[in-house]
C-alpha cells in the first residue's frame, strides 16, 4: 500500500523550498526574529536586505539549522524542522549549501580539498569527484588558486572557494550571508551573479546583505528585514500565495 506523502513533502514537490510561519528565534535571553513569515521557492533568488543588526544573519542561522526556532513553524525542503530527528536534520543540512559571512575552512588544506569536502563526506572516491570539483573551480573562477592552501588565498578567493564548496553537494537550497562583504562592487556583483546562476539548475538561492543594489544583478525577489520582522518588497503574486498565512 503506497504511503500518502506528508503535506510538507507535497509543499516541497510544488516547489516551496522554505516556509517560515510566525517564527521567533534568538540567542539566550534576547529574541532577534519576531513572527517571521517567509517563503522561498525553487528557481528563485531571494535577496533579504536590511540595516546592521536587523536579523539577517540570525535568519540565515535559522535557515541553515544552526539556530532553532523558539516558536512558529519552519519547513525546509519538505521537512518540518521542529519535529525532525537529529539524523534527519543532519541529512537536511547536507541539502543546504551555506556561504558564511566569514567562511570557516581547514586552512592548511588546498582550496580544492576544501571544496571537495561535502563529496568526501558522502564517502565518494576521489576519482569520482575530481572532475566535478574542477568544474566548480572553473565555474567560480578560482583558477590556479584552487591548488593553494586556503590560508594563502585573498578575501575574494576565499569567498569563491566558499561558494564552490556550498555548491559541491548539489544543494536544493543555497544560503549566502553577506557574500559581498569587503569586496569591490564589481567583484560583489560577480559573486551574486554566480550564486544566481544556480536557480537555472532548480535550486533556490537566499542572499542576505546590506547592499540593496544587488537586486539589480538579475531577476531577484526582494525582502526587507528590520528589527527582526521581515516583509516582501514588490513581490508578484504566486500560486501558493493563498496558502501562505
Amino acid at each position: 500500500m503506497a504511503r500518502t506523502p506528508s503535506p510538507d513533502l507535497e509543499l516541497f514537490k510544488r516547489g516551496v523550498l522554505v516556509r517560515m510561519t510566525r517564527v521567533d528565534s534568538g540567542y539566550g535571553a534576547s529574541t532577534v526574529l519576531v513572527g517571521v513569515d517567509f517563503e522561498a521557492r525553487t528557481g528563485e533568488v531571494a535577496l533579504i536586505t536590511g540595516p546592521a543588526a536587523a536579523g539577517k544573519t540570525t535568519l540565515t542561522h535559522v535557515l541553515r539549522l544552526a539556530l532553532p526556532p523558539r516558536s512558529g513553524r519552519l519547513v525546509i525542503l519538505g521537512v518540518d524542522v521542529g519535529r525532525a530527528s537529529p539524523r534527519s536534520l543532519a541529512s537536511l543540512k547536507r541539502r543546504i549549501g551555506y556561504v558564511a559571512e566569514n567562511p570557516v575552512f581547514v586552512e592548511q588544506w588546498s582550496a580544492f580539498d576544501n571544496i571537495a569536502m561535502p563529496l568526501k563526506m558522502g564517502a565518494r572516491k576521489a576519482r569520482d569527484y575530481v572532475d566535478d570539483v574542477r568544474e566548480l573551480v572553473d565555474f567560480v573562477g578560482l583558477g590556479e588558486a584552487a591548488d593553494l592552501p586556503v590560508e594563502k588565498l585573498s578575501g575574494a578567493e576565499r569567498r569563491r572557494t566558499a561558494i564552490a564548496r556550498a555548491l559541491a553537494g548539489k544543494p536544493d537550497l543555497i544560503l549566502a550571508d553577506d557574500p559581498t562583504a569587503n569586496m569591490s562592487p564589481a567583484d560583489g556583483r560577480r559573486i551574486v551573479r554566480l550564486l544566481s546562476e544556480m536557480r537555472r539548475v532548480g535550486a533556490g538561492v537566499i542572499i542576505a546583505s546590506q547592499d540593496e543594489s544587488l537586486a539589480e544583478c538579475g531577476p531577484i525577489l526582494r525582502w526587507r528585514i528590520e528589527h527582526g520582522r521581515i516583509s516582501p518588497v514588490d513581490h508578484p503574486a504566486t500560486e501558493d500565495a493563498e496558502a501562505f498565512e
Binding site: A66, A90, S91, L92, K93, I96, V106, P118, M121, R165
Partner: peptide
C-alpha cells in the same frame, strides 16, 4: 576544531 566546524556546517552528524 575548524574541521569539526566545517563538517558540522556541511551536515555531518555528531558521530561522523
Amino acid at each position: 576544531r575548524e574541521l569539526v566546524t566545517v563538517m558540522t556546517d556541511l551536515g555531518a552528524t555528531h558521530d561522523q
